[in-house]
């Protein structure tokens, strides 16, 4: 009886595994097609960044980079081609990966690295978010060392053709259906046209006051791995003699001088080709809520004002 059961089990397991592999190939292929055929949206932008971008000026950073650096203004004023490679919700490990891939193709004249004030703070999600690089690993094997940060067995997971497209289906579908309704893409720059309501701003100011009081009592650990990524990014710029600007772009409220913020400056100043600019305490922007789309991002008016000011400084 046990032998019959075993035979049946292994026979069915074999059939099931064959079906699983076949389905994985078919679904993986369909997801790959859906992903790489996108013309607009975050995935399309990542594809352009990693596969094609080769401008004179490159902007790296999170959504704050994406929404704060007007490509047309910077390009016109500096008479150079530009691409804004900012990516929603990303941190230093991602900027580092994107930088390494692009530098294999083209060495830009200027790099702008927009850093968040919480860039060096403890936050595991900065590594988990490297999963957005998974679809590109087959084309750019250099990315494997970055995706290895996600978990111990990332390379084994590549056996599956579907896995690299995990969590992409919904956005792919959304962007295929609605990306024509997104604001037009200005060489990567994504303008936000709304303005934060005054009441929302005041509510945020109060929330932030309580948060800063709470934070001041906490012992914040520096993420030394993130520090290593930061240094690696700047070292590559130094080695290739690329003029680099590390910028904390404007914030709606004056940001306190945190340990992470001070460290960002200290490290940047170790590199002769790097200029560190901090706008997080700039009275031109702090509390001027009409220049902001929400609590964290400048709107198009604010971004254009900031880009003009920055271009004059870089000239």
């Amino acid at each position: 009886m046990e032998k019959i059961n075993l035979k049946r089990f292994f026979k069915n397991l074999l059939i099931f595994t064959a079906l699983l592999v076949a389905a994985d190939r078919i679904i993986g292929y369909a997801l790959e097609k859906a992903y790489f055929s996108l013309k607009a949206g975050q995935f399309a932008q990542t594809t352009y960044t990693l596969d094609k971008a080769a401008p004179d000026i490159l902007v790296f950073g999170s959504s704050r980079a994406l929404h704060h650096y007007s490509s047309s203004i910077l390009s016109d004023k500096l008479h150079k081609s530009i691409y804004n490679a900012g990516s929603d919700g990303q941190f230093l490990p991602y900027y580092c990966a994107a930088q390494e891939v692009i530098l294999q193709r083209k060495i830009p004249k200027i790099i702008i690295l927009d850093v968040n004030i919480w860039e060096l703070g403890p936050n595991d999600s900065k590594y988990i978010k490297l999963a957005s690089l998974l679809p590109y690993v087959s084309e750019h094997p250099i990315l494997k060392k970055y995706t290895a940060e996600i978990s111990d067995y990332e390379n084994i997971k590549f056996i599956s053709k579907t896995y690299p497209y995990n969590s992409t289906l919904l956005i792919s579908a959304y962007d295929h259906l609605f990306s024509n309704k997104l604001p037009s893409d200005d060489r990567g720059y994504f303008p936000l046209v709304r303005t934060i309501p005054k009441q929302q701003f005041e509510h945020y100011r109060e929330q932030q006051r309580i948060y800063n009081e709470k934070r001041a009592k906490q012992k914040i650990k520096i993420d030394m791995n993130a520090v290593d990524y930061y240094r690696a990014f700047l070292q590559r710029c130094e080695d290739l003699k690329i003029k680099t600007y590390v910028i904390i772009s404007p914030t709606i409220l004056k940001e306190p001088k945190t340990k992470e913020k001070i460290l960002l400056k200290i490290i940047a100043e170790e590199y002769p080709n790097v200029t560190f600019l901090d706008y997080s305490s700039d009275a031109t922007y702090n509390n001027h809520y009409k220049l902001f789309a929400d609590e964290f991002h400048l709107n198009d008016t604010g971004a254009k004002k900031f880009s003009e000011e920055l271009a004059d400084k870089i000239k």
């Binding site: 679904i27 996600i150 978990s151």
Partner: peptide, 10 residues
């Protein structure tokens, strides 16, 4: 495949 496509693996 729902797990593979929509799951959170980390």
């Amino acid at each position: 495949f729902i797990i593979l496509i929509f799951g959170v693996f980390n």
